[in-house]
């Protein structure tokens, strides 16, 4: 078996004073090594919750999550958020080694050299002494990705990482991030409500129902031969895949509509 991540029958309930909210009913899926998986679902369905569970920031109410057969260890996971969350008071270099610093490995030359080569490879070497505010949105998102890669995580979790960018930048950064993740041979799990984004990036799309969420369908995507995500949007199958996912999500809305 070469699955890196295994999510089995996970259920999660938020407790608040007023009531309890079942965010996730029952979710199971696996991700293989090197795979790029996308989760799509209406907003509020529990996508961020799933990532927090996988990252070990929340504990499942029921079910189990394993990474390489072991219980999740937060330090083995790379997390990327909607915003880049670069620290304005740190230089780019200080930002990218934040994770190493936290693990007290900032003096480990093997690791810092690795970070340096990542910065060099992805066109950020000249900016290491700059402050984040001096960089464009796309560059900042690349820096955020390298900060995540610096600690060499087993799996990358991306929570709508492009939704804060304007449309033009979004398409470019999407290609950039995809290239970096593939080049570095990383396994990735992306969460989004943008169906096109999911199809263009992923090898596999997991469709969630609305809250409390369960897996409605898992669709395999095979658009690798078309190249980078932006090109894949022009693939003939793209439309069909889009409709299929769209229908899955719409179908549920109709169901709900008839209930009321």
């Amino acid at each position: 078996m070469n699955d890196v991540l295994k999510v089995s029958n996970v259920n999660y309930i938020y407790h608040t004073l007023q009531n309890e909210i079942e965010a996730i009913k029952d979710i199971s899926f696996t991700i293989n090594k090197g795979e790029f998986v996308a989760i799509v679902g209406p907003s509020g369905c529990g996508k961020t919750t799933i990532l927090s569970l996988i990252a070990g920031l929340l504990k499942p109410t029921k079910g189990s999550i394993t990474l390489d057969g072991k219980n999740v260890d937060t330090s083995k996971i790379g997390y990327m958020f909607q915003k880049d969350h670069l620290f304005e008071w740190r230089t780019i270099w200080q930002n990218v080694i934040l994770g190493l610093e936290i693990k007290k490995e900032q003096k480990n030359t093997e690791k810092t050299n690795n970070v340096k080569s990542l910065l060099e490879k992805y066109g950020l070497k000249d900016f290491i002494k700059n402050k984040p505010r001096e960089l464009s949105g796309g560059m900042r998102q690349r820096v955020a990705l390298i900060r995540t890669l610096a600690t060499d995580p087993k799996i990358l979790l991306l929570d709508e990482p492009f939704s804060a960018l304007d449309y033009q930048t979004r398409l470019n950064v999407c290609d950039d991030v995809y290239k970096i993740i593939k080049n570095e041979n990383k396994t990735a799990l992306l969460v989004t409500h943008d169906i096109s984004e999911a199809i263009s990036l992923a090898d596999k799309v997991i469709i969630l129902s609305s809250r409390p969420s369960y897996v409605k369908k898992i669709i395999n995507i095979n658009l690798n031969s078309y190249g980078l995500p932006f090109k894949r949007r022009e693939a003939p199958e793209f439309r069909e895949l889009f409709d299929e996912i769209w229908r899955e999500i719409q179908y549920e809305k109709k169901e709900e509509g008839s209930k009321n």
Binding site: S52, A55, L57, T74, S75, I77, G78, Y79, F81, Q82, K83, H85, F87, L98, G99, E101, I102, K103, T151
Partner: peptide
């Protein structure tokens, strides 16, 4: 989210405070 980020990088409460 910045606090979540620190936690996902493995930071303890002291590190979250000081960094």
């Amino acid at each position: 989210d910045k606090i979540q980020l620190m936690k996902s990088l493995g930071a303890n409460k002291f590190q979250i405070l000081f960094k």
